[in-house]
């Protein structure tokens, strides 16, 4: 519950940064914070009260194979959000790097990082 609220607040803070800041790198930092917030929300939704990680080892059950599956079902949390977030974090880094590369390129062509200096791309 607290974790969910934290994630939502992080999304709002990141969005605020993206809307108000002028520096391109600061906008991308806002995007990174928002990314972290979304991941926290997704994982918090998959949590089940009092259960352990979805990895069947000796702490969950001593059984093996199909029997372990039957015994572990009511002892572990939802594995699907973890799996989604696992790939989303790596993609997030790649997308952040792509945005930064674009920002560097804009700096080299326009000699400025201020978003107000790129008037020709305004609508």
């Amino acid at each position: 519950m607290i974790i969910l609220i934290t994630g939502l607040l992080l999304i709002i803070i990141g969005f605020w940064a993206m809307l108000t800041r002028k520096n391109l790198i600061r906008i991308i930092i806002g995007f990174a914070v928002m990314d972290t917030g979304i991941n926290i929300v997704l994982v918090a939704i998959g949590y089940v009260k009092g259960k352990t990680a979805p990895i069947i080892d000796k702490a969950v059950t001593m059984a093996q194979g199909a029997e372990a599956g039957i015994q572990a079902v009511d002892k572990v949390v939802d594995p699907v959000p973890s799996a989604l977030v696992l790939t989303a974090i790596v993609i997030g880094l790649a997308v952040t790097a792509l945005m930064l590369a674009y920002a560097i390129r804009m700096y080299k062509t326009g000699n400025s990082l201020d978003i107000d200096d790129f008037e020709e791309q305004k609508w």
């Binding site: 259960k51 979805p54 990895i55 069947i56 599956g69 572990a72 009511d74 594995p79």
Partner: peptide
């Protein structure tokens, strides 16, 4: 309690694939 989809995945990962890590 875990929902049906998650339970199915956890059971399947142990029974069908013989793999401890459901993620």
């Amino acid at each position: 309690i875990t929902n049906n989809l998650a339970a199915n995945y956890v059971f399947g990962s142990a029974a069908d694939l013989n793999m401890p890590n459901a993620v």
